[in-house]
Design a protein around this nucleic acid. Structure first.
Lengths: 193, 193
DNA sequence: TCAATAAAATGACCGCGGTCAATAAAAAAT
DNA sequence: ATTTTTTATTGACCGCGGTCATTTTATTGA
């Protein structure tokens, strides 16, 4: 059972991804059509699905790669120690996550691996986000009565909550960062009686 | 500009909804097909879309109605005062919200109104959920350094977080309720130093 | 160098949500 | 009662994601 991958394969895949990125640059994620991608890449429609399980799989790759780059930047900074520093450090990540309703929905949909064997780029991103925040919280000026892991899970939960409300017309008065700061102040630094 | 609605309209609409409910009872939400609904209801496909903006709009109505019934029950109980009582009171609601991946995704997608004018059944449900939990927290044995509204938003955020992880194979070890209890203990009753 | 075999690409085809000009049925006007 | 106007229904059609038997291209073995 030899399964030699031809270099042709890599070229085609690269062409598909590059074509997708170009189309997204001009039209955004939501408007991306598989037929446009294959036409721009100069291949047949079936070829697309020989390289990606479905359209979402490509989206996962593209969005996951972008998110990873943002996490690289966040990781390179000197670790934030206060709530507002943490929010500032994550701002580019959160901004991208809420840049399009379509992107946010896809993130939620693929945030967890449905099977341990198939951890996709987005599930991978959330895992990395969680570990990074955990690390920050270990050394930050926050409550110590619960584990940093639990605190990090809460940060994620509140970030997603704030993002949801960002898309809601009923709560448009407050900005995303202000809302998240309110949440995290109450979550990370409750008053020590 | 009179816009008299014929009784015929109400009948057709009721038939469509009943047919949908029957199909869902046997096949679940995800597998519902518009073509099956109209065939079961004995109308043409176009009729469906004269009554509902799109398939999701019908889903919103069906799922929203179910959720409202669960909230009715929760509201009828004697108000819970502790974390585990709150979790127990919300258990049927949460159970339905996570009964199908498809249902959960739809809930997230329509949790907020995109325009103030179009508050759908699901956005309405989340608003009601929020108000009910707020009311409970006003009289419950929880921290008082922040408003009950903020606490209720947190309960919602943690509930959604726990639901997300329920669908994730990486975190399948812990049950939904156990996880939520851990979250809410830390959120609602932090140690008073 | 030339079969034999494996891998990749192709495009006609399908499923299903959603549209819309045409038609039928009901209500209002005469 | 008959015409006019409004409201509801119809079904052929479209867009787009996804499939698969067939064909093309690369690799291996003699």
């Amino acid at each position: 059972m030899q399964k030699t991958t031809q270099k042709r394969t890599l070229k085609t895949r690269a062409r598909l991804i590059e074509a997708s990125e170009n189309l997204i640059t001009t039209g955004g994620y939501e408007a991306l059509r598989v037929e446009d991608v294959v036409q721009a890449a100069g291949v047949a429609k079936g070829t697309f699905f020989a390289h990606f399980r479905d359209k979402d799989a490509l989206m996962e790759i593209l969005i996951g790669a972008k998110l990873d780059r943002f996490l690289d930047s966040a990781e390179a900074r000197t670790p934030p120690r206060t709530v507002s520093e943490i929010i500032a450090a994550l701002e580019p990540v959160h901004r991208f996550m809420t840049s399009e309703r379509y992107v946010f929905d896809l993130l939620i949909r693929y945030s967890g691996a449905t099977a341990v064997a198939e951890i996709g780029p987005i599930a991978h991103f959330f895992e990395r986000y969680f570990r990074l925040v955990t690390m920050w919280l270990e050394a930050a000026d926050v409550r110590k009565d619960v584990t940093p892991e639990l605190l990090a899970e809460g940060v994620q939960a509140f970030a997603i909550q704030a993002m949801s409300l960002r898309f809601c017309a009923l709560h448009a008065a407050t900005t995303f960062s202000d809302r998240l700061e309110t949440y995290l102040d109450a979550w990370l630094t409750p008053p020590t009686g």
